[in-house]
């Protein structure tokens, strides 16, 4: 299977792997957009509506919407449905709080490649939050 390695900035150390869920327009931080207890995406119009974030590597361009963004992901963590890690094209404050609060590996700030464009939902992704390396194994 085709493999590719891309590199960003390691934002929170540690290794994580899992199937990627790509959110080209991010996930809204507004109340009800992410299930606080079941970790399911309920944002109307989101391409991943109805999918659970549990054990996945979430791939986003940035955060979006309410400043409650981090709190809904933290609720999901405490409820036992946390994602395995984060990849973001660029870090921002909403996402930074979510990463720091969940304390899970994250790679951000890609300068020569946009992870949104080279990772597809369902690809197997390994991230190294210490070195910033991301290894993508395409699903086909």
């Amino acid at each position: 299977m085709e493999k590719r390695t891309i590199k960003g900035r390691g934002a929170l150390e540690g290794r994580a792997s899992g199937p990627a869920i790509v959110f080209p327009d991010s996930i809204a931080g507004n109340s009800g957009a992410l299930g606080d207890i079941d970790g399911v995406v309920y944002e109307k119009g989101n391409v991943n509506y109805g999918i659970s974030i549990k054990d996945a590597i979430l791939v986003v361009p940035c955060a979006k919407g309410s400043n409650g963004f981090s709190a809904h992901f933290k609720g999901a963590l405490i409820a036992g449905v946390k994602p395995a890690g984060w990849i973001s094209t660029k870090i921002d404050a909403r996402l930074g709080v979510a990463i720091a609060s969940m304390n899970i590996p994250a790679v951000v700030d890609f300068s020569d490649v946009d992870p949104i464009k080279v990772i597809s939902t369902g690809d197997w992704v390994e991230i190294n939050g210490t070195t910033g390396e991301v290894v993508i194994t395409k699903k086909d």
Binding site: S31, G68, A71, K74, I91
Partner: peptide, 30 residues
Amino acid sequence: RYAEVLGAEEFCEVSRATLFIGAQHYLDCY
């Protein structure tokens, strides 16, 4: 940890804050 995630080099002094706290529904996990 938050500063390191962001890549910040120092802190600044904060003189005002509003907090979305109380029995908010993001605490339904408890």
